[in-house]
Design a protein around this nucleic acid. Structure first.
Lengths: 342, 342
DNA sequence: TTGTATGCGTTATCAT
DNA sequence: ATGATAACGCATACAA
């Protein structure tokens, strides 16, 4: 009912050759096909609209040509950007991409991993919902399925390949820029750290600068209370006024949260307040006359992760590798501190 | 090397039963398993970490549990939003999702379709790069593979299921809103229509209003010349000043293009110029104090498309259906026409 | 250069 | 209620 069930046997019969020859032709095997029969086979294939059956092939070869990607939130703009890099690398290598959305739910993530493994994906790229290693993930790894983490690490004893942003470096770049611009107080807005390693790393890096700055505040974004930030912001600007206070946002979502707060209060940026964010979504240049940001190398990030995975699949690589890619400072209007205008 | 090759036979041996029983257990077949043996089988499965092999199963059942989605641009925010809706529907139905990025290239699209079909996807959701029906697509449809189009139609004789925005309605909503707000001239910014049906529909709808308005201009977005729009804008505002001219953008990308032009000129929105767009990306509320938009029901769009596809797969449905979902007007600051302030 | 025959891991038919 | 066993469509070792 699906494909009309044209098999290699049908083609063979039509072309007056054996199944083996057809198979050889399909796989382009070396010193074998006489141009004459090759032609007959090709013709038969065209005539009948034959399409090889990947299942049967996989059953023999133990190779599925499938790779899986599991992410916690498809809607987060970071994800499609990374996916783009993954797709570019895997497609060229002849793999197809299975995708799963864990919706930030560890149970769902486990179920997905399981399902994708039944499909016999040859490897998995995972942006884990949490640094806690779920049982299915552990099992899967011990079965020898190649796994590459993106953006986030798992802790515990399980060390895997990982490629992500150099978070400490990114935060350092941000602080250096803000300092050079004359800012004297930072309000850092982050998502609830939960058990997400990248959030922790960024937060830790921020705290590391606290001693040098003296004036760094942390605010955790909350969905139900958009006003939580406004009071902190007002208080901070009261203490260090003159536009010498800056909000630093941990990512695009928290930046939108901060924008909301800023609009509510009615602050002008950069007049009353500076603003900056990690991550560089498409809209960054257009809001507030341009928001300064640390861009993540999203495409490369995905590309490198995919390459790493392909290596593991093909050459059965050595030790797990942690690859950290640098962010890139995009200077825009939102951090034009009033007193240091140029 | 991949999965350690634990088969149903291994489980059967371990549980002291036949392969058939294990298979029956796995598929939860009705009047068969004695609780006693069921227990033994379950135990064996756990002990050995057995995972069914989807290939072999598919080979027998002729069902892969795979669905494919092919889109022209993963990075376009519309796509992940729709994907979200697709994922939600298909996952619940026990399908896994294969994804392909055609990168706006019809050749690549064809290659992808072919590859995904070799993987024996049971159905395809396609946002076509063009309304021209490629040969592989035609072949695939005539083979009986269910296809549901999203966002765009194919013309020609090939009529397929489609779910997309009611573009005419969306444009009408936009014009009605703009008129009610007191705008007297519209500059419509669109992507090059190429052979994309949704772009055509929107453009046609805009032109349909031209006679009633008298003052509607079309501008096509160009990558290499961001200045093309600025001159049109200046000229338009010269003719109909006082903030009574509005830019209407065909989507998020053209909106960013327009924002660039507006910034270059230095117009204030809505003081000097109104602005509005089709599509409602996350940043819409935050740019220019909020950009009025017609939001697409992205999640529903994906969800409906997926449901339609599942119907076709299961119940071998009737005629192709064209489903048009209404947009939703999001009124914000950018269309607060000066003279009609409230 | 080409053909024959076996098995990949399951499901399903037919026995028992 | 359970066990043998024949396909499913293909790749490959072995023959010819």
């Amino acid at each position: 009912m699906k494909t009309k069930g044209i098999t290699i046997a049908d083609v063979a019969r039509r072309a007056q050759v054996s199944q083996a020859s057809v198979s050889r032709y399909l796989n382009g095997i070396e010193g074998n096909l006489s141009t004459e029969t090759a032609g007959r086979i090709q013709k038969a294939i065209n005539d009948m609209g034959y399409r090889p059956n990947a299942w049967a092939r996989s059953l023999k070869t133990q190779r599925s040509g499938l790779l899986a990607v599991v992410v916690p939130d498809l809607a987060n703009s970071f994800v499609p950007a990374v996916l783009d890099g993954i797709e570019a690398a895997t497609n060229d290598a002849g793999f197809s991409l299975l995708i799963g959305n864990s919706q930030n739910d560890q149970m769902r993530e486990s179920a997905l991993l399981d399902r994708l493994l039944q499909q016999r994906a040859e490897g998995i790229i995972l942006q884990p919902t949490s640094d806690h290693v779920s049982e299915p993930l552990r099992a899967l790894v011990s079965e020898g399925v190649p796994v590459v983490l993106i953006d986030r690490l798992t802790h515990d004893e399980l060390v895997l390949d990982m490629v992500g942003l150099d978070n400490r470096g990114a935060i350092r770049m941000a602080f250096e820029h803000l300092q050079a611009r004359g800012y004297r107080q930072i309000v850092y807005v982050t998502d609830p750290p939960d058990a997400v390693s990248s959030r922790h790393e960024r937060e830790q890096a921020v705290l590391a600068h606290q001693s040098a700055w003296g004036a760094v505040r942390l605010v955790v974004r909350t969905h139900n209370d958009p006003g939580a930030l406004t009071s902190v912001l007002k208080e901070a600007v009261d203490i260090v006024p003159g536009g010498h206070t800056a909000v630093l946002c941990s990512n695009g979502m928290t930046a939108l949260y901060a924008l909301e707060a800023i609009r509510t209060i009615g602050y002008l940026v950069p007049g009353d307040l500076g603003m900056m964010m990690i991550d560089d979504p498409t809209w960054a240049p257009y809001v507030l006359g341009g928001i300064t940001s640390i861009a993540q190398p999203t495409f490369n990030l995905g590309n490198r992760a995919a390459q790493r995975l392909l290596n593991r699949i093909h050459h059965t690589v050595t030790k797990p590798l942690e690859t950290r890619l640098p962010g890139q400072l995009m200077i825009r209007n939102s951090t034009m501190c009033p007193l240091r205008e140029e």
